[in-house]
Simulated assay, not measured.
Amino acid sequence: MSAMESQALIRKLLAVTCLIAVATCDFQFNTKNFKLYRLWDMDDRMPPFSPLSPITCKEECAMFCLNDVTCAAFTYGEYVKFCMMTPEIVRPYDVSISFSLPGYTHYSIYEDIGDGILPPGYRTFNVSKLALRFHYYWPMNWTDARDTCDSEGGRLLTLDTEQKRQLLQDLIISNKDLSTTGTGLFVGGVVNGTEFYWEDGTLLASRDPLWATSQPTGTGNCTILDRDKGFRLADGDCSLKQPYICEHLHFETQSSLPSVGRYSLT
């Protein structure tokens, strides 16, 4: 990390407010609010992942996670002082594949949108009330990707404006994992009959300017945001396993916190 990046992180850390007395911990980051959810069953256990880097405290680890658009959860090692960020939440069955290692605690990150919270891994953006989650750790075919987004209360992304396309391009280019994972990510367009449609039934016309040059080719029935084609739409094979982008319509519905665990950094 450069000196400039370190100074920026310190400034961000000053925005953290923890209310340990009432067993809650709220984080303000870039004017947005987040809550931490601790999976107590995973205390003193370590999933089979690699650490990020040495970190001095849990709060700093949380801020690194919030600064990465793909981070849904983090693990902190008290004794060795390290932080591990993961794009998927830690789940109860991870206990069975982890190994005993004292001093480790695990947290999922939830964005608080006032009258509800978003599922872990989703971040809001000032574009059409947009909340996005990038799934790249477990690539899926288009149907499974659609079902996963649906299970999170969202849908595969409808890429219908240049503003959204530019946002995605900026986010992907600036993230080390997204910028090096495959050439494209599934979004929500799919062929129905002879035309492409988004999941809400809106027509994705073959002359839409969001298509890449010479697209669609007619050889694939699902849409991909293609990095090699200028971050524009291309048609692709629905059966291929690709990373994918979910959007959550948080102005229509919000999620609830899990029924077990606590908000806490203790």
Rank of each mutant, 00 (worst) to 15 (best):
C149Q: 11
T105P: 00
R146P: 00
I97M: 09
T158Y: 02
E111L: 08
Y122W: 02
I97P: 01
M140G: 01
G116W: 06
Y136V: 09
H135K: 08
S151P: 08
Y136L: 10
Y136N: 06
I172D: 03
R165I: 00
F82Y: 09
P102N: 05
I173M: 14
R91F: 06
D144R: 12
L157F: 03
D147G: 01
E88D: 12
P139H: 08
R123S: 11
H106F: 04
T148V: 14
T161V: 04
A145R: 14
Y110A: 01
Y93F: 14
D160T: 12
Y136Q: 09
H135Y: 09
I97R: 13
T86Y: 10
S98H: 07
Q169A: 04
Y104S: 02
A131L: 05
P87I: 12
F99A: 01
P119G: 05
M84K: 06
Y110H: 12
L157N: 08
T161C: 10
A131D: 06
F125M: 04
I97N: 10
C149F: 08
I97V: 14
V95E: 12
G114V: 12
Y136I: 09
R146W: 07
A131S: 15
F134K: 05
G114N: 07
D150Q: 15
V95M: 07
F99D: 06
Y122G: 01
L118P: 10
L171C: 04
F82Q: 09
Q166T: 06
V95W: 07
T143C: 01
L157Y: 06
L171N: 02
G154I: 14
Y137W: 13
D112L: 05
G153I: 12
T143N: 11
P120H: 10
T158R: 15
D112T: 13
S100F: 11
S174R: 15
